[in-house]
Amino acid sequence: MNEKEKVIRVKNMYKKFGDFTANNDLSFEVSKGEIFGFLGANGAGKTTAIKILCGLSFPTSGEIKVAGFDVYTERESVKRNIGYMSQKFSLYEDLTVFENIRFYGGIYGLSKAEINSKADELLDKLDLQHARNKMISALPLGWKQKLAFSVAIFHNPEIVFLDEPTGGVDPVTRRQFWDLIYDASRAGITVFVTTHYMDEAEYCDRVSIMVDGKIEALDTPEKLKKQFNVDDMDQVFLSLARHATNIE
């Protein structure tokens, strides 16, 4: 497990829908434990790319390996080694906190004993032990979000994909959420995150910016700012996205 281990390798990935090219020749690599920001305006092709990396959709062409497995032929293994969280937080409102944990642990094949001990650990860490038997619908948004993230990495995946995980959440809660992301990254989980918030882009180790289906920039936030000669990521993003034609 050296520092340079690449858990995502994408080489010349194309995805076409008829005449429309959603992903145009994407190539990038993500290292283990890295927090990789995947940015782009709506319609730039982010969602399409994430779906391919998660094994929900096949690419038109290209070489793609996720967690060391091929997305064409080893989808089951890919799925077993990733976690996923969307902006909807995706917990069952009519199940309790513990039932949600147990359900998601169960579908990843964790044993009962594992689920019980890890659930306790998790609830202690999130300070949610008192809400263990409460329905999700009774929890505030911030708690749901943290819980959804913890559930997404409950089975210790190699990579966790976060699709705009902080949508609709206040800045303080967002900041707390990012603490969880750092924890996961320190524990060796690679974090692949899309976001609309440019301040969040600054928290990433590296950032890629997609415009019209292509990756137009890929580097650390510092280097990108230097390269475009601007003060923050917002301006980096704007100077790139200004030329886009596919914005919804």
Partner: peptide, 13 residues
């Protein structure tokens, strides 16, 4: 609710 996505991403076929 978006939970279908999670199920599809999971190892359940």
């Amino acid at each position: 609710l978006g939970t279908m996505e999670i199920l599809l991403v999971s190892p359940l076929n």
